[in-house]
């Protein structure tokens, strides 16, 4: 009901109301356009939720089946690096929120600066992520033919396989140790999918930085910055779940 009265109001006002250039022809008012696009962006994010939901389902099942393997393999990840990355991503989300605020209050230089900072934080995040991937690759923890279970059948040989008190973890039986590969499959699939989303986001960020320098978002139509902000925050949220689920299994 409220929607339809809003439209009627827009149509009635339409006669003496000059249309801003960014109002698409099939909308009656800017409000309707912003409402619709904002809603569409949310629906798109919900499809993303379901997409990651499938991956989290897989994670849930195998973590329950192979808990010892998941717990042991999780120790191969560096909580320090993961924590730093989490902070970086949260910060980039904060700067993105500030970018939205700058666009809404028409601060052009502030907007450009915030977008650049967001982009750079994204670069740092992916850099650290790449460094972590390389570590796994070098230790033959990338799933595939050359996968090595050495660290899990013989934890004493690996300085990372220690508990919070610095004592080596108990070795896994060979069949359970082989299941650590499943953990790394999921680790690479989930963080890889997350990194892919960040790459796409950073591509859009570059585009937006150029548009923002030309003043595109600070002349009344800040909606695009807002939509992109929603996407960026969503990617941040996915990481907020990935971090404890992948890095912090049984650390005590």
């Amino acid at each position: 009901m409220s929607d339809s009265t809003a439209i009627a109001h827009g149509a009635a006002a339409g006669t003496h109301h000059e249309h801003p250039p960014y109002l698409r022809h099939h909308f009656e008012s800017v409000d309707q356009q912003t409402d619709a696009s904002n809603f569409a962006m949310w629906l798109f994010l919900l499809t993303e939720v379901m997409f990651f939901g499938g991956l989290f389902t897989v994670y849930m099942i195998y973590r329950n089946w192979y808990y010892p393997a998941f717990s042991a393999a999780s120790h191969q990840l560096d909580v320090m690096l993961g924590g730093i990355n989490t902070v970086i991503l949260i910060t980039s989300s904060f700067t993105m929120a500030l970018a939205v605020w700058c666009a809404e209050t028409r601060k052009k230089s502030g907007l450009v600066a915030m977008l650049v900072v967001t982009f750079l934080l994204g670069v740092v995040f992916l850099g650290i992520k790449g460094h972590e991937y390389k570590e796994k690759w070098d230790k033959h923890h990338f799933p595939g033919a050359s996968y090595s279970v050495q660290a899990f059948v013989n934890p004493a040989s690996d300085p990372l396989q220690v508990n919070a008190q610095g004592k080596p973890l108990a070795p896994l039986a060979p069949d359970m140790a082989a299941r650590t590969e499943m953990y790394f499959c999921l680790y690479f699939a989930m963080t890889g999918m997350h990194a892919l989303h960040m790459l796409i986001g950073m591509g859009i960020l570059i585009f937006m930085i150029f548009r923002a320098r030309a003043g595109a978002y600070t002349e009344g139509h800040s909606a695009y910055v807002n939509y992109f902000g929603l996407y960026w925050h969503f990617v941040d949220i996915v990481w907020l779940f990935l971090f404890p689920l992948l890095y912090l299994i049984n650390r005590h």
Partner: peptide
């Protein structure tokens, strides 16, 4: 005419 949204 431009109805600004709520700015956080």
């Amino acid at each position: 005419n431009h109805n600004e949204r709520h700015i956080t």
